[in-house]
Simulated scan of single mutants.
Amino acid sequence: MYTKAEASKVRTEFWITFGQYMKPVPNAQGRRINWPNYRTGIKDIYFRMKAERDFASIGIELGHADEEMQELFFDQLAQMKKMLFASVGEEWDWKLHARNEFGQTVTKIEKVLPGVNVMESGDWPKIISFLKPRIIALDEFWDQVKPGFEE
């Protein structure tokens, strides 16, 4: 069992390792980017990557406080579902008005990898191999659709 401080240190080490692994990879526009802290540039739209004790996940999270705005963004993304699928190459789970770990209502479009544990460094290659192609694909998708969210 890990103390809170030990668990935090392991998670921090994982994200530093992931960031170093991704550092040479440019974004869709050919620029350097901080992949672990990806910024969409649109308020209340986030790309979330998680590595936990029993899963890893990646997704788009719509965090607008107004649930109707979440639904509007959700519907807008649903119209682009084929483009997202073309980028990521797989179906993702679409969850309108779910609860996050803080009890807030958010909307998520995500892919989960069960059965991995960030506390086990032996699982890190699996987690990185799961996250890397998907964050790159999300970036390519976002590069195409972001102008539709800037209005």
Rank of each mutant, 00 (worst) to 15 (best):
M1S: 15
M1Y: 13
Y2N: 11
Y2Q: 12
T3N: 04
A7V: 06
S8T: 15
V10K: 09
T12Y: 12
T12N: 14
E13K: 14
W15E: 03
I16A: 13
F18I: 04
G19S: 06
Q20R: 15
Y21D: 11
M22E: 04
P26A: 06
R31V: 08
I33W: 03
N34M: 07
N34Q: 09
P36M: 06
R39K: 15
R39C: 07
G41I: 05
G41D: 07
D44F: 11
Y46W: 09
Y46H: 11
F47Y: 09
R48Y: 07
K50A: 15
A51M: 06
E52V: 04
E52D: 11
R53M: 14
R53Y: 15
F55G: 01
F55D: 01
S57F: 07
I58Y: 00
G59I: 01
G59C: 02
G59K: 00
G59Q: 02
E61S: 12
E61T: 13
H64P: 01
D66T: 08
E67C: 05
E68H: 12
M69Q: 13
Q70G: 03
Q70I: 04
L72N: 12
L72D: 13
F73E: 06
F74T: 01
A78Q: 15
A78M: 13
A78I: 06
M80Q: 10
K81F: 06
K82F: 10
L84A: 04
F85I: 10
A86D: 14
V88S: 02
G89D: 02
G89S: 03
E91T: 11
K95S: 08
L96A: 02
H97E: 03
A98D: 13
A98I: 04
N100D: 15
F102D: 15
G103V: 06
Q104W: 13
T105C: 08
K108C: 05
V112R: 13
P114S: 11
N117R: 05
G122A: 15
G122V: 08
W124L: 02
P125V: 05
P125K: 05
K126T: 07
I127A: 00
I128A: 04
S129E: 14
F130H: 02
F130Q: 01
L131T: 02
P133E: 10
R134M: 08
A137N: 04
D139Q: 06
D139N: 15
E140N: 13
W142L: 11
D143V: 09
V145D: 01
V145I: 14
P147K: 08
P147D: 07
P147L: 07
G148H: 09
